[in-house]
Design a protein around this nucleic acid. Structure first.
Length: 288
DNA sequence: AATCCCCGCAACCGCATTAGA
DNA sequence: TTCTAATGCGGTTGCGGGGAT
């Protein structure tokens, strides 16, 4: 894979951007669009690499960037989606119009990670070192389990934080749970069973298992799935590129036009990121 | 007042993925 | 189908500001 020439360092300015550079970049993009990032610096009269220009525009200069501190709602969204997606900052950012992946990543690393690790300790969370030494499937189990615990906790208690949420947010609060409870989860279980010659319901990953996970939240409204449909589409084929227009036009979380169940088993698999299709950890999950 | 230390954020780096020739 | 350029993404770094000593 050839490395982009824009990464070459000679003759290219680095470091903090000056107001003049910002203006040149904004003016150029406003007038011409960014086009090819690689050639943009020359065209805009900037002594920067295209990558740097792109980053500056996306993370700072774009007119639709939302500035200021994160709201409780945004914070909860980040925590929730991070529980499901891990460090997929771009995917998480797509759920927060006006926020960039970089901003969310920074916010997570500087605020939420500490905050959560503190509260984890108070709940005697497992030692990270131990988790690190576990097999990949075990790590996924831990991830899912923690997501489940969090989801159930959210559903079972009316925290002050949640009270501040809009009702629409509550409906998509637990797409993780919805997903598993849906036909996608069903087909995933069925197909995986066929593929691997395993009868999934022999006390393994079964409807029983999923329902045991989900029983406590049977009142979840299975609607408003567009958000997750987009996420899965994005992960599966990268055909969906999240953009701010989605939110602007109400096509984001609020609109329910995406056909969620088109997100296939493979999308679900992608979500899980189960190494080598190893879903044995569900056994444990079902037992617990 | 000076210095040190910590924290937050912007920017960079390198790898992965995608597009297109 | 293969190769290369371009773009996207996540991890990491380094600088500046503010609080502590």
């Amino acid at each position: 894979m050839g490395k982009a020439a824009c990464c070459e360092k000679h003759g290219v300015k680095r470091g903090a951007w000056t107001p003049q550079e910002d203006k040149a970049l904004v003016d150029y993009i406003n007038n011409h669009g960014h086009g090819s990032w690689r050639t943009l610096p020359n065209r805009a009269g900037l002594v920067r690499c295209g990558k740097s220009c792109r980053l500056r525009w996306i993370n700072y200069l774009r007119p639709d960037i939302k500035r200021g501190p994160f709201t409780n709602e945004e914070e909860s969204t980040i925590i929730q989606f991070h529980a499901m997606l891990g460090n997929r900052w771009a995917a998480i950012a797509s759920q927060l119009p006006g926020r960039t992946d970089n901003e969310i990543k920074n916010y997570w690393n500087t605020h939420l990670k500490k905050h959560l690790s503190r509260s984890d300790h108070s709940r005697s969370a497992p030692d990270p070192k131990i988790i690190k030494s576990e097999s990949p499937s075990t790590r996924h189990m831990v991830q899912w389990e923690s997501a489940r615990v969090e989801a159930e906790a959210r559903l079972s208690m009316e925290s002050p934080l949640l009270n501040s949420w809009s009702t629409s947010n509550k409906t998509y609060t637990d797409c993780y749970l919805q997903l598993w409870h849906s036909e996608v989860g069903d087909s995933f279980r069925m197909i995986k069973g066929k593929e691997e010659g395993v009868v999934m319901c022999q006390g393994h990953v079964s409807q029983e298992a999923s329902s045991s996970i989900l029983e406590s939240c049977s009142d979840v409204q299975v609607k408003n799935t567009s958000t997750f449909a987009k996420m899965t589409q994005q992960q599966e084929g990268s055909t969906y590129k999240p953009n701010l227009e989605d939110a602007d036009t109400g096509g984001g979380i609020e609109s329910g036009n995406y056909e969620f169940f088109d997100a296939s088993e493979s999308a679900f698999k992608n979500l899980l990121e189960v190494p080598d299709g190893d879903i044995g950890f569900w056994d444990t999950l079902a037992v617990s």
